[in-house]
Design a protein around this nucleic acid. Sequence first.
DNA 1: CGTATGCTCAAACGATCGTTTGATTCCAGC
DNA 2: GCTGGAATCAAACGATCGTTTGAGCATACG
Lengths: 204, 204
Amino acid sequence: MNSSVSTKERILTAAEVLFAQRGFDGGSLRQLTAAAGVNLAAVNYHFGSKDRLVEEVFRRRLDALNAQRLAALAKVAGRPDTTLEDVLAAFIRPALELSSDGSGSLFMRVLARAFAEHDDNLRQFLSENYGHVMRQFTAEFARLLPQLSKEELYWRIDLVTGALTHAMSGFGMIQRKSDVPERIHREQTAAHLIRFSAAGLSHP
Amino acid sequence: MNSSVSTKERILTAAEVLFAQRGFDGGSLRQLTAAAGVNLAAVNYHFGSKDRLVEEVFRRRLDALNAQRLAALAKVAGRPDTTLEDVLAAFIRPALELSSDGSGSLFMRVLARAFAEHDDNLRQFLSENYGHVMRQFTAEFARLLPQLSKEELYWRIDLVTGALTHAMSGFGMIQRKSDVPERIHREQTAAHLIRFSAAGLSHP
DNA sequence: CGTATGCTCAAACGATCGTTTGATTCCAGC
DNA sequence: GCTGGAATCAAACGATCGTTTGAGCATACG
């Protein structure tokens, strides 16, 4: 009874769900392979180790996320009529829209969780692979907020990231208990985040 | 070579350090008891189980934190000349000042990590034991921000919590690499958080 | 002095972990 | 139809986990 999707992708999808629920240490390969309907040894065969599987889980989603962020930023960056809200939307909306493909909302919890764990290896991985995205956003924020010192700007962007991370990590959970359609809830979250962050960033 | 501090407290202190570094699942009782210089069985003897030890780690710090928060809030709540920044300071400063006793900054990472993990048991524990604190703060915020709807206020307080949690979780790490005295760094963090949050909370 | 109580200790328990192995099945290419 | 590499499988490996056990030690009380 082979399904149409490959074993590798079934593992990746099941990994997102399991890691979001139990964490990276808490979710075992036996639980994972049982949920995915594949053999236990398949993880080590296709990915080499559990750690490399975790890395692939991140890479698959983050590549798409940061590509969307950069594409959205490119549409508004450098233009004279661009507002702070435009740049914040480019930064925030793709992160929340990851949930549009079903298991994406679970991945957001995985990411937020890993981010909060401050694992040094993960941070280095994120910095190496996606640091240039943050650099581009920071440059555009600096252009729109010339009155802020570099240090002040870094501080405020970090607080925006914190609010976004927190909202992402709670997204899947609130969603579960609510009967509001996911799309609407996502829009509300994005709108609140953007307005809150714009006010926090631009205050004198 | 018995130290002057009790075995129970040595375990609790070592637990904060270990759990902050490795997480609750990643840190084992053998690593913990080795670092604390006590026997492996001491944890189960004094606390019953690893889970109850984790609970005690939280309770010891959070009792003090929320007592400080409520004391600070009581000084300003209900008064006609109280500002939004005053209430935010009562909410934020005790959380950051937990670091003043050395291993406290590690506990902040533990707490932020656990909070991000959205463990259902932990959330229930926090809600049952410290929910009244959040309720009092929410009431005072509502008094100072009468133009906001209840729903709008909940949203914004949640974003403030996210920014605070994020700042707390990064506190220990940034501190390690910096040569700025901890007290100064804490003041800067608090000042940025309060101003950022006040702007985000009070925007129209 | 005898003994009860609180605590510490080395050792072992069963369970579960990530990983490896070697046989087996599958399927494309000659 | 045969062959060879890719993929899957059950089974086992050694390591580590949280927890339990029972003997040993200390101190306080009758």
